[in-house]
Design a binder for these strands. Structure first.
Lengths: 147, 147
DNA sequence: GATAATTTAATTGTGCACAATTAAATTGTT
DNA sequence: AACAATTTAATTGTGCACAATTAAATTATC
């Protein structure tokens, strides 16, 4: 068992390694996404829309764990850059639907290679990758439950 | 092997799970850190200073993987809140040393319980925690090398 | 010892994150 | 039908992140 002193060391904290890893991975994505003219959070929005064609702000937020304070301005920037369209639902005017433009749709072709390139940069084997993904998703689920 | 289509699914991407986990864990810290009047990145700075008494901005940046554009304004906010002192080195005026105030030092007592509380919220066993820490640190090192 | 290269913080500008509040629309209950 | 409660985005304000640039000081080279 660690001492209470040791537990306060930066390098013994799981949270810090997750936090630092997160920023480092995003840093590896950056040059690839720069080529597409998008940021990492915008890439995540596109991943959802490539999969589902059309989502409400609410649905995007649930998928990405982001709220409207983050999404609304980001989606407006993406609209200005002609990546997505935004329009209010006819049925329920509180709801805003987000869909892809032609440009947003076409970026998918250029994104296919990205996961593979990142996988190589990670230095992990496919099994290690899969295992880690599994563990993190379990952790994510558990943390989300204990809120 | 995954199809190129499957690899673009949000939920099959390791990076997203790291990114989402990072924000979720920080969210678990938030109520605890609010009590201390600090943010998560500020907590990280304090962890380093509790361990080393005194660090330059450069050293803090290396430990936390952060640059001066992030640290300078953050350290100034911490100075305003009487958590740290900042002063230029006599030997080399390019260097700024950061040290703890009494208040910054004393917060450590109230922080001892934090790692334990987070550990409980994570739902992990000590072994799982240790194992994950190990894997993430390896990943971090490898990514940092492949930049 | 002049000057070129390097090191170190600070500054500027853009883009997330997220808490808290607001506002509008819808739904549920009487 | 009235109106209270809920749902959904948008807004506001603060605090990171990070790229790119600037500025000052130091070190290395001639």
């Amino acid at each position: 068992m660690m001492s209470k002193e040791t537990m306060l060391y930066l390098d013994s904290q799981l949270c810090f390694s997750i936090y630092a890893c997160s920023r480092e991975v995003i840093g590896l994505y950056r040059p690839l996404l720069d080529d597409l003219g998008i940021t990492y959070p915008q890439y995540l929005v596109l991943l959802v829309l490539w999969e589902h064609k059309e989502r409400t702000v609410k649905q995007l937020g649930k998928a990405l764990y982001l709220d409207s304070g983050t999404l609304t301005p980001m989606l407006k920037r993406m609209e200005v850059n002609d990546l997505v369209k935004r329009y209010r639902s006819q049925d329920d005017e509180r709801v805003v639907w987000i869909s892809l433009t032609e440009k947003g749709t076409s970026l998918k072709e250029r994104a296919y290679c990205i996961p593979e390139e990142l996988f190589e940069k990670s230095g992990l084997t496919a099994e290690e990758m899969q295992d880690m993904l599994q563990r993190l998703q379990t952790l994510l689920k558990h943390m989300n439950a204990s809120k």
